[in-house]
Design a protein around this nucleic acid. Structure first.
Lengths: 205, 205
DNA sequence: GTAGTCATGTAAGAGGTTACATGATTAG
DNA sequence: CTAATCATGTAACCTCTTACATGACTAC
């Protein structure tokens, strides 16, 4: 249901084609709910069938056509309902930690390399998120600008703040990942020195 | 590939039936990679077909039978390879934050309720995780005990520490969630007091 | 003309959820 | 005898990914 929610949310700012939607997805909610072209187009067709959105054919050049979607009243209702309903927390999966459970199978060097890659991954993510947050706060996205135009000025602060705060969550989580990985590097070092001194004791004995 | 990895990991401690596996999943890596009976049994059959695990029929009571799976050499290799390979970080999805992006549609009261539910959710999760971590550190699980028996005593510390540290990650992340939700409650309060003198929105235009 | 962007799809398959179906064994 | 547990599945469905396919339009 979340892709559907994302589509409703994006369309609530302005009508657009499936192609536009894919671009705006990346710009706005893309970090929160990525979607491929294949899935986006399919979902749009399905939602049109269910009356949540309405597509109208528009000319494009002389021979070609494009389909511009906009929210219906039912779609607007579904969007509100989606925010109103309590969120059903799905099972979270954590492939990295699953593998980490078996790091005892690895040489310390490889374990360290994996953890350093983890840190690099989330550092990069934080940079990207901060750039996005700045983009939101400065209203650089045409999608966000369109959304603001739909609302009175006194609502603008909330719209922008909620968006930025949503990405702020991802920053906090990424920072926690880095903290954890650093601690895990300490753990690896400790395990290594323990096994090192053992070897020394054995060698000495 | 992660369910497969989880199966290999669990089976590397001891041979067992699909039914046992489901129970041990919940006990050990269940928080990291939950799986349903349907999926578990299917995956086991598939992995048997690919020679990663081998099932032997064993009698159960007088008429019934059960299938006990164990790792093959290929399976052991696959497990090692799975830890050795760099982890391919998947796209992460965040349904809660996606909804949060549109909290401006909600009355402040409902926004607060959602955030409080968020805090409650992760507080509960932290409690459960801490209980699990204690269980690991005290070696309460028969699965972990079996695993330790397979290894020399000087390896025990690492095995236990990695497991506990894996769940420790989830604790850190859950704490970050709570921190974020508290900050978001402050944000809601601020927005509300800003709009305090103004008339608040009601109804759809 | 050709490269890049705009625009829309289909098909196959992996991975996961939910619901249902079946029957034996064990503990009380 | 009954209920809980042990044990194994099947079927339908949803979501998401990957790869492929098509063709018009625009700027150079």
């Amino acid at each position: 249901m979340s892709l559907r929610f994302a589509v409703l949310g994006v369309l609530s700012s302005m009508p657009m084609t499936g192609y536009d939607m894919m671009r705006y997805f990346e710009e706005s909610v893309g970090t929160l709910w990525p979607s491929s072209p294949a899935q986006t187009y399919q979902e749009l067709r399905k939602m049109e069938g269910e009356g949540l959105i309405a597509g109208t054919l528009a000319p494009r050049g002389r021979r070609a056509e494009k389909r511009i979607y906009e929210l219906t009243d039912a779609g607007r209702e579904a969007l509100e309902l989606g925010t109103l309903e309590p969120y059903g927390y799905p099972n979270e999966r954590d492939g990295f930690r699953l593998r980490f459970c078996y790091f005892e199978l690895l040489p310390y060097e490889v374990a360290r390399a994996h953890l350093n890659a983890h840190i690099a991954h989330y550092k990069l993510q934080i940079e990207q998120l901060k750039a996005r947050i700045e983009g939101i706060e400065r209203c650089r996205s045409p999608l966000l600008q369109a959304r603001l135009r739909l609302h009175p000025p006194e609502a603008h602060e909330a719209i922008i703040a909620y968006r930025a705060q949503a990405l702020g969550a991802q920053v906090l989580l990424a920072q926690a990942e880095i903290t954890w990985a650093r601690r895990s590097l300490h753990l690896v070092a400790k395990l290594e020195s323990n096994s090192g001194s053992r070897k020394q004791r054995k060698g000495a004995a």
